[in-house]
Computed example of a mutant assay.
Amino acid sequence: MTRLAGKVAVVTGASPNIGGVLARGLAAEGARVVCTDISREVAEDCARRITDAGGEAVAVVGDVTDPAHATEVVDEAERRWGRVDVLVNNAVLFNQKGLLDMPLEQYRRQVDVILTGAFLVTRAVAERMIAAGSGGSVINVLSTAAWQGQPGNIGYSTAKSGLINFTRSAAMELAEHGIRVNGFTPTATQPEDPELVAEVGRLGRLPGRFPMDFTGQFPMRRLPTPTDYVGTVVFLASDDAAMITGSNITVDGGATAKYWPWAPHAS
């Protein structure tokens, strides 16, 4: 499969869950991939999985909130392959706390990673795309928590929601340069990686101050896995989406479309 043959992609937050699977999916379609993460082990593992499968990839370690890291990422892409065509902004910091118990500095850090990280890396990539005159595609990983009110997850929900209009605003600013900026909305995701499955198990009903019933409230019969997202991201990265910008594609099994009192699997 070669829908992305000749393209160079950057994926931030290349964990074995969503980011890493997206990186491998882009590579499987012919893209050469820069795998970035704050964890050296995570970034290098992502790149190694791609090369082991016969693709081309490189790991770049750093913090997306550091402007120097954003520059380093695009420098490495250009040094190796001469260009940058695709950016997937997936870097995230999970810290489930609410309005009343989230320390200010933790809130700032979470928003900084998700929202400022997307700003910095998008700007660095866009500057190179503009200089090259080649256009490109930026894909911001959102969340169903960006569109709905989730209690007990204030920093994540706020930052992901901010990415919605960051996507629209950046899309309008970069349209004249042939750079498309779109959102992609996943939802609660069942990991596929064996180590992650062993760690988190199967998503179901989670107790706590704000209990979550993922499977019981989900319209379809199973939660999505990261592989379910690959086709959408490949499409947005490809020339097939040449006239799609400032938009969003939701892959959530109907979760955000569901009328709130309906219990899909009630006996």
Rank of each mutant, 00 (worst) to 15 (best):
V8Q: 02
V8E: 05
V8A: 05
A9P: 00
A9L: 06
V10F: 01
T12G: 04
S15Y: 02
N17Y: 04
I18N: 04
G19T: 06
G20I: 00
G20V: 00
V21T: 15
V21P: 00
V21H: 00
L22D: 04
G25K: 00
G25D: 02
L26M: 11
L26H: 02
A28H: 07
G30H: 06
G30M: 09
V33T: 08
C35K: 01
C35W: 04
T36G: 05
I38G: 09
S39W: 08
R40A: 15
R40Y: 08
V42D: 07
V42H: 03
A43V: 08
E44I: 05
D45V: 05
C46R: 03
R48M: 13
I50Q: 07
G54S: 12
G55P: 03
E56R: 05
A57M: 09
V58C: 08
V58L: 14
A59D: 02
V60D: 00
V60M: 06
V60W: 01
G62S: 05
D63M: 05
T65C: 12
D66E: 14
D66N: 14
D66F: 06
P67R: 06
P67D: 14
A68L: 11
H69W: 07
A70K: 00
A70Q: 01
V74Q: 01
D75A: 13
E76Y: 03
R80K: 12
W81F: 11
R83K: 13
V84C: 10
V86C: 09
N89A: 12
N89Q: 08
N90K: 02
L93R: 15
N95D: 15
N95H: 13
Q96K: 05
Q96L: 11
K97V: 12
K97D: 10
G98Y: 10
L100W: 12
P103L: 14
P103C: 14
Q106N: 13
Y107H: 12
R108G: 05
R108D: 15
R108C: 10
R108Q: 15
D112L: 04
V113C: 04
I114K: 03
L115M: 12
L115S: 07
T116P: 01
G117K: 01
L120H: 01
R123A: 13
A126R: 01
E127C: 03
R128S: 08
R128M: 12
I130R: 14
A131K: 11
A131E: 15
A132R: 11
A132H: 13
G133V: 08
G133K: 05
G133T: 08
G133M: 09
G133I: 11
G135L: 13
G135I: 11
G135A: 10
S137T: 07
N140E: 13
V141C: 08
V141K: 00
V141E: 12
S143F: 05
T144A: 08
W147A: 12
Q148H: 07
Q148S: 11
G149W: 10
